[in-house]
Measured scan of single mutants.
Amino acid sequence: DAPDEFRDPLMDTLMTDPVRLPSGTIMDRSIILRHLLNSPTDPFNRQTLTESMLEPVPELKEQIQAWMR
């Protein structure tokens, strides 16, 4: 099983494109984008959230890719 820090906190699946929300939570980009289609909010604190506020986490993405090899 993947380490917890590699798993999306909402869907508990392996992240492939991790992004940091303004709240500091790291999620998979595809999952948070799907959530934003229904509700333009951070799913953990209900603060306003837009796609432009998502910050890529390239170092975590590299760690996940290395773990998958």
Rank of each mutant, 00 (worst) to 15 (best):
E55P: 00
P56S: 11
T48N: 12
R34D: 10
R29H: 07
M27A: 05
D28A: 01
A2M: 15
D12Q: 14
W67Y: 10
W67G: 02
T41A: 06
R29F: 08
T48H: 15
E51R: 08
R34I: 11
E62N: 11
T16R: 12
D1R: 15
S23E: 01
A2D: 05
R29L: 11
N45T: 15
E5V: 11
D42E: 07
A2I: 15
D8S: 03
I26C: 08
P22G: 03
N45R: 05
S52N: 12
V19C: 07
D28S: 03
M15I: 08
L21H: 00
L21W: 04
V19P: 02
Q63D: 07
K61N: 06
E5M: 13
D42L: 02
E51N: 07
R34E: 12
I31V: 15
F44L: 05
M11H: 10
P22Y: 05
I64T: 00
T50G: 06
L21I: 04
T50E: 10
D8C: 10
L49I: 08
A66D: 11
F6M: 07
F6N: 01
T50N: 13
T50H: 13
L33Q: 08
F44N: 03
R20L: 07
S23N: 07
F6K: 02
R20F: 05
E59R: 11
L33F: 06
S39Y: 09
I31L: 05
M11I: 07
M68I: 14
P9C: 08
P3F: 05
F6I: 03
D17E: 08
I32Q: 00
D28R: 00
L36Q: 00
Q65P: 04
W67T: 02
T16H: 10
S39L: 07
I32N: 00
M15H: 00
M11C: 15
I64C: 05
H35E: 07
D8W: 04
D1P: 12
A66S: 11
D42W: 04
T13I: 12
I64D: 01
T16Q: 12
M27N: 02
V57E: 08
R46W: 12
H35I: 09
H35T: 03
Q65S: 10
E55K: 12
R34L: 14
L14I: 15
T13M: 08
T50K: 08
D1K: 15
P9R: 07
M27K: 02
D42K: 00
L10Q: 05
Q63C: 10
S23G: 08
L21S: 00
F6T: 02
P56N: 09
I64G: 00
R20H: 04
R69T: 13
T48P: 15
D8H: 05
E5N: 13
E5R: 14
N45M: 06
L54C: 05
R69D: 13
S52I: 10
L60G: 00
L60Y: 03
V19S: 01
D17R: 03
R20M: 09
N45K: 05
L33R: 08
E55I: 15
P56Y: 08
Q63G: 03
D8K: 06
L37C: 11
F6E: 01
N38T: 15
D1V: 14
R46K: 15
R7T: 06
E59S: 11
L60A: 01
M15D: 00
R20V: 06
L14P: 06
M68Y: 11
R20K: 10
G24H: 03
D12G: 15
T41M: 09
Q63L: 15
L60V: 05
R7I: 09
P22D: 01
Q47Y: 08
D8M: 03
P9V: 04
P58N: 10
D1A: 13
R69M: 14
L49D: 03
